[in-house]
Design a protein around this nucleic acid. Structure first.
Length: 570
RNA sequence: GCGGCCAUCGUCUAGCCUGGUCGAGGACGGCAGCCUUCCAAGCUGUUGACCCGGGUUCAAAUCCCGGUGGCCGCACCA
């Protein structure tokens, strides 16, 4: 793949990224970002924050939680189980099988919940064969993508590095929700590093063992049917359904036809498309790919991968939009014992009649002693299922018990119901910052007269503007340097260079994607302004000294040089 | 994890098969200088590499073994 190597070569040479720990031979799946790569990535993150948090029409907050995650958190989330596959590999034909499933189908034994050791024992005692070539399979190994570690000395508490930032958001939900004054919907965002111990990391920045995720969990009331804003309903998208059908049409229609699970999913598809547009991808280049049931993560009931084309690696996934339902909050509630459900006021409170048990606790205590709690629980349970008729008989762990009339009385009570309790549902858009960095660079590389140009969107360039004296001349340098400090104090990232010839300097900044270059020439010395060059067209205009700031400001907000009615230079 | 191919200055590469002539050559880049008034110009100088560890040999960039890493395929994974 020549294109891919081209990009890697440019990335190394110009300080975007390179393999980590190179002086020790490198480690697969770990990459350093160089100065330019770091700048561009930071700007991608900045743009993401602007788009999804700062400009959000709905409440959206950002938090930060640790990478180190206790064992039980990822156990509750299902990752301990779902990220570990017991695998067996045929020594002869190298086919790989899920060891538990293969044994279950061939030996008819239940393997659910078996450890790797138990499976290994099973494989050494019984004969399990490769389904393709018949070779006996003898060993089982575990592939868990979670990076394991320990908290504290003496290996006391097992822990993992998080595979997603989402679990920190779920485990902090109660406090975050409280801070947001208990209102739904609520988006909680997090940008952070995650680690996955990939079996076989490849493809440059696309599959790494440690990377940055930008994601948010958008919590909403599943019964609060929100109407799709018109601008969202009218948005044209390309969706490839899990059935294989390609749908090209509006989000409103996709929702009506049931292609998209709910209005919030549709809304965030729209928002995601807008973000991808800002990164330079046209709507026609962005494909929302629905994942089939078996391809989805364990927590998801609908997932769209966001795919963009690259020259080096074909279509790559840069984001996922998953409908996680109430899976995570529900499981964390069960596991932790903390109630993570929320209550909302009903618009129309209503009355209902319930059965209440009035218990003579003193009598219960005398008769049942330390078993009293079980008895009382059983009585309440009985009451919950309606008014008991006839004799009161309870089936308890220590036998059947009949209660006397006097010890408990049931009565119907009218009760006002003013709230509804539920686990918020969650839509999770999750972006891979490093994959986006790769995709943006790939997308931006063009060639002109044998030179490489990185046509990054201006908002993503590592520098806003370059400043050059045309030649190595003291007065030109002095003027250029004072321009540099003026621009810096006005908030621009400025690249200054007075080395070599002007053409070489233009070529250098073209390669790192600097959108504009200001050159100080002999006319500038006479007070006749400076030239400003456009990276992509190589055209130049002359700008008066006192116009430089405003021209750059207009450029930054999206205006083009040729629209500004400036004198053309060359 | 498996199989095939591969690993030399920052980058691209010559050399390896047939061990010594390699104190590892070139190009581009970088740096310093000269020259230069708008697109990698020219000249001079300079910087800088045999992936790591063993072995064979008088002698290893070169042959052998192991490791690490990369690419491709299979498999796995989101």
């Amino acid at each position: 793949m020549a294109q891919q190597e081209d990009l890697d070569e440019l990335a190394r040479r110009r300080g975007f990224f390179w393999p980590s720990y190179e002086i020790y031979g490198g480690v697969g799946g770990l990459y350093d970002l160089g100065p330019n790569g770091t700048s561009v990535k930071n700007r991608i993150i900045q743009l993401w924050r602007d788009h999804f948090i700062r400009s959000s029409e709905y409440p959206m907050v950002e938090i930060e939680t640790p990478m180190v995650t206790p064992y039980e958190v990822l156990e509750a989330s299902g990752h301990v189980e779902s990220f570990t596959d017991p695998l067996t590999i045929c020594p002869k034909c190298h086919r790989v099988y899920r060891a538990d499933q293969l044994a279950e189908s061939q030996l008819g034994v239940k393997t659910e919940g078996m450890t790797i050791e138990q499976l290994n024992e099973l494989y050494s005692k019984e004969t399990v064969k490769c389904e393709a070539c018949g070779t006996r399979l003898e060993t089982v190994q575990s592939f868990n993508l979670l990076f394991q570690t320990w908290i504290g000395p003496f290996n006391s508490e097992r822990a993992f590095l998080r595979p997603e930032t989402a679990q920190g958001i779920f485990t902090a939900f109660k406090r975050t929700f409280e801070t947001a004054r208990r209102k739904l919907p609520l988006g909680v965002a997090q940008v952070g590093r995650v680690a996955r111990n990939e079996i076989s990391p490849r493809q440059s920045l696309i599959r790494m063992r440690e990377f940055t995720i930008m994601e948010f969990e958008f919590f909403f009331d599943p019964e609060d049917a929100n109407a799709l804003p018109k601008k969202v309903a009218d948005t044209e998208v390309r969706i490839k359904l899990s059935s294989g059908q390609l749908y090209v049409g509006t989000l409103g229609d996709a929702l009506k036809k049931g292609y998209v699970a709910n209005a919030w999913m549709a809304y965030f598809i729209h928002q995601t498309l807008g973000f991808m547009n800002a990164l330079g991808f046209s709507t026609a280049e962005v494909l929302f790919l629905e994942k089939g049931e078996k391809e989805r993560a364990h927590y998801s009931s609908q997932t769209f991968d966001v795919m963009v084309p690259t020259k080096g690696w074909g279509d790559i996934e840069v984001a996922g939009i998953a409908y996680r339902t109430d899976y995570d909050l529900r499981h964390h509630s069960q596991k932790s014992g903390e109630d993570l459900s929320v209550s909302v006021a009903l618009p129309q409170p209503y009355a209902r009649t319930v059965v209440r048990a009035k218990v003579d606790r003193a009598a219960i205590g005398k008769r049942f002693g330390e078993r009293s709690k079980e008895v009382i629980d059983a009585i309440n349970q009985l009451a919950a299922s309606g008014m008991p008729q006839g004799r009161i008989v309870l089936n308890l762990s220590f036998g059947s018990v009949e209660l006397d009339e006097g010890i408990v009385k049931f009565e119907e009570v009218s009760e006002r119901v003013t709230t509804r309790k539920f686990y918020p549902h969650v839509v999770e858009p999750s972006f891979g910052a490093d994959r986006l960095l790769y995709a943006v660079i790939d997308h931006s590389i063009t060639e002109r007269e044998g030179r490489k140009i990185l046509s990054l969107p201006a908002a993503l360039a590592p520098y806003d503007v370059a400043v050059f004296p045309l030649i190595d001349d003291e007065s030109m340098k002095a003027k250029a340097l004072s321009l540099v400090s003026m621009l810096k104090s006005s908030g621009f990232y400025v690249f200054y260079d007075d080395d070599g010839t002007i053409g070489r300097r233009y070529a250098r900044v073209d390669e790192i994607g600097v959108p504009w270059a200001i050159t100080v020439d002999d006319r500038s010395i006479k007070g006749e302004g400076v030239t400003i060059r456009d990276r992509d067209s190589w055209q130049q205009w002359r700008v008066a000294d006192d116009q430089v700031l405003s021209v750059l400001g207009r450029l930054r907000s999206g205006e083009k040089l040729y629209q500004m009615d400036l004198p053309r230079e060359r």
